[in-house]
Design a protein around this nucleic acid. Structure first.
Lengths: 166, 166
DNA sequence: ACTGAAAATTTTACCAT
DNA sequence: ATGGTAAAATTTTCAGT
């Protein structure tokens, strides 16, 4: 039995498709992406709506997953993490890729992506110092199926933020 | 006149040095980095303190810059940004590097770092589609002093978060 | 989506250790 | 200096329209 149009649309909507957002939604999202401590009354003046109306929209945006959460942005240096590095890891097997994903629970690991190119993984690491980065690199290089690791050590960070609307 | 020890310490503290955080601070920071919507009374039960005591600590952590802000994390795909790419750009002059920093106000650009290696810049871009990525790449490649651009296109993202304490 | 009111939370002031 | 208690000021949230 063929899947009906509405069913496929529902699946698509839940998975990948952009939520349909009007200009007001985008304004709210932009404001909250920069500073989520703003009160609904503040937001209401920004978008020319009442506070409860803004509240309803934010609730919907959270329910739909457009807003994935609200988090505190911490200063890596102030936490003692002074060494930001991007690793591009070339793996020869999917096993090795899977092994790399297990590093997700390390507090110094901030991002893990698989990238195009045969079996490449990109990892963003914020280590305390050169020594702990070296230990981390050695751990990775000793994994079965890891062909090579290229390190891009950040000298200065000029911009660092999450996704923005529009 | 030589700078006194306390002065240098003050400068150091303000610039790079880790703030001195006890276990309670770290617990609070870890909790807020995951979910900053938690109320002070919730946090107070986590760390076994009163709500105002937690409030005082959070206030101090904000004043000292350990907490840089509180932001909403948005879903790139839901916003229509489906194509996450890391660019490693090799530049031949500092002028070119400066030109790249001007892309900071583009909404699709999320990170810009200078990285070790002669005049390299790393850019994290979340484009709407392949077409807008291509346009972006062409803009960058046409800049005077840009030698080469390597693109790492993300296929799947397994982890994406900010700095954590501990 | 707005008005107005109730509930919860943040935030201050003050006191104790 | 740090944390607790209690009260004031906001903010969130839920009615009804």
């Amino acid at each position: 039995m063929p899947t009906s149009k509405t069913e496929t649309d529902a699946v698509r909507l839940a998975r990948h498709n952009p939520a349909d957002l009007d200009a007001t939604d985008r304004k709210i999202l932009g404001a909250l992406a920069k500073d989520a401590t703003r009160s609904y009354s503040e937001l209401s003046t920004i978008v020319n709506l009442s506070a409860p109306a803004v509240h309803d929209r934010v609730k919907r945006l959270k329910r739909d997953g457009v807003i994935k959460g609200t988090v505190a942005r911490l200063d890596g240096c102030k936490l003692g993490r002074t060494l930001l590095t991007f690793l591009v890891i070339d793996t020869s097997s999917y096993n090795a890729t899977r092994a790399l994903l297990r590093f997700a629970d390390r507090p110094e690991v901030e991002e893990i992506h698989t990238v195009a190119g045969d079996g490449c993984v990109l990892v963003k690491v914020r280590a305390n110092d050169t020594e702990s980065l070296e230990n981390f690199l050695m751990e990775i290089q000793s994994l079965e199926g890891v062909r090579s690791v290229r390190s891009y050590i950040a000298l200065s960070t000029f911009l660092e933020r999450g996704p923005l609307p529009e």
